[in-house]
């Protein structure tokens, strides 16, 4: 491996990681601002103009709070829980194509950290492992509410992973590849997968809400039943990591949905721009912008739903997962198969 490639990848990884952390930081502010707007009040507006420094103030507050580890807790696993949650939230960004290629001084730089040929499965694996942070943290706290929350997280994760996987299979039948780079390339211009897989997208979206433990599926931290859920015993930055991991997960889920169903960095009229003589670098940069607009819209949707839809009951959640989502996902696969067979490609 030559050294230039290594440097290029290290820079790319740092930039992507930095952007995901900053986006997650400001998602916390956006969440509180939008909640304020929907409830007819101002959100946080004290720290800086329009409360723009609020995430920093929150960070400083969490760092300087007293660190408490319960005496009966398993110390190692208690610390491992939030660390794993954070790690698993961050590694998902590695296979997402953020843009086309950039030409910098005669070097072609791909804006995707790793174009592995099993990109979708990698995302699926990260999602499957994401629940361990919550489970380990909840169990190690030695608190019955945390334990109940950990058990809820496990069963919810497993149940919705099935329909998540099944909705992806229908998508794979259309695209015929597992590589995220190729999937985005196929959606060039306005030929997005959402036109071929509307039902699959709705299923995937619902499962994303369940997998990121967001309202209306946030039974894991349902404070009316479980105090604080899995993070009842957590304080200081360990609590911060758990809460922050949720926002990074939202960012990754939004990026995955934009990539799979909404064309990723593709935008209508990109070929017309290329014919008009606009250089490839500019098209790439506009594409990255388009990607981020889509991601931010999805993040807004996540927040909007949280402050609009009430929380499900646990049996309703399970019923929705097993009795409605899975049959719909299987029907989607059958319909996709029949349509592909009829149209003959």
């Amino acid at each position: 491996m030559d050294i230039a490639l290594l440097i290029e990848k290290v820079i790319l990884i740092s930039v992507v990681l930095g952007i995901s952390l900053v986006t997650a930081m400001y998602t916390t502010l956006a969440e509180r601002k939008i909640a304020g707007f929907l409830q007819d009040r101002y959100g946080p507006n004290r720290a800086g103009p329009f409360g723009i420094l609020q995430p920093l103030a929150d960070g400083v507050k969490l760092f300087t709070k007293e660190e408490i580890i319960p005496r009966e807790a398993n110390r190692f696993l208690f610390v491992l829980g939030p660390s794993l949650a954070m790690l698993m939230a961050c590694v998902g960004t590695a296979v997402i194509p953020w843009g086309e290629e950039l030409e910098i001084g005669g070097r072609t730089v791909s804006l995707q950290i790793a174009d592995v040929n099993i990109g979708i499965l990698y995302i699926f694996g990260v999602v499957a492992l994401g629940v361990y942070g919550i489970m380990i943290g909840g169990w190690a706290s030695n608190n019955k509410y945390s334990l109940l929350s950990a058990i809820r997280a496990a069963s919810q994760n497993i149940s919705y992973e099935i329909s998540l996987g099944l909705s992806l299979i229908a998508l794979l039948m259309v695209t015929g590849t597992l590589s995220l780079g190729e999937i985005v390339e196929q959606q060039r211009g306005f030929n997005w997968n959402i036109w071929y897989q509307p039902l699959g997208f709705i299923l995937f979206l619902t499962c994303s809400f369940a997998e990121t433990n967001r309202n209306p599926f946030d039974l894991v931290e349902c404070e009316t039943e479980l105090v604080g859920g899995y993070h009842t015993e957590y304080s200081s930055m360990k609590l911060g990591f758990f809460l922050f991991a949720e926002y990074i997960n939202i960012f990754v889920a939004s990026a995955v949905m934009s990539t799979l169903y909404f064309g990723g960095y593709n935008f209508p009229g990109m070929d017309a721009l290329a014919q008009a003589g606009v250089s490839q670098n500019w098209i790439t940069l506009i594409g990255v912008g388009a990607m981020f607009v889509k991601v931010l819209l999805f993040i807004f949707f996540f927040i909007w739903v949280r402050w609009t839809v009430p929380r499900f009951r646990y049996d309703q959640l399970m019923k929705l997962g097993w009795n409605i989502m899975i049959p719909l996902a299987i029907a989607n696969i059958v319909i996709t198969g029949v349509v592909i067979w009829l149209t003959g490609n």
Partner: peptide, 24 residues
């Protein structure tokens, strides 16, 4: 690669979550 990722999803991601679930 395929076997690797499927091993991760199925064993580490699903079956072990169920194991942990039952033990908890």
């Amino acid at each position: 690669q395929f076997l690797a990722i499927v091993n991760m999803i199925v064993y580490a991601g699903a079956i072990m979550v169920l194991f942990l679930f039952v033990l908890m």
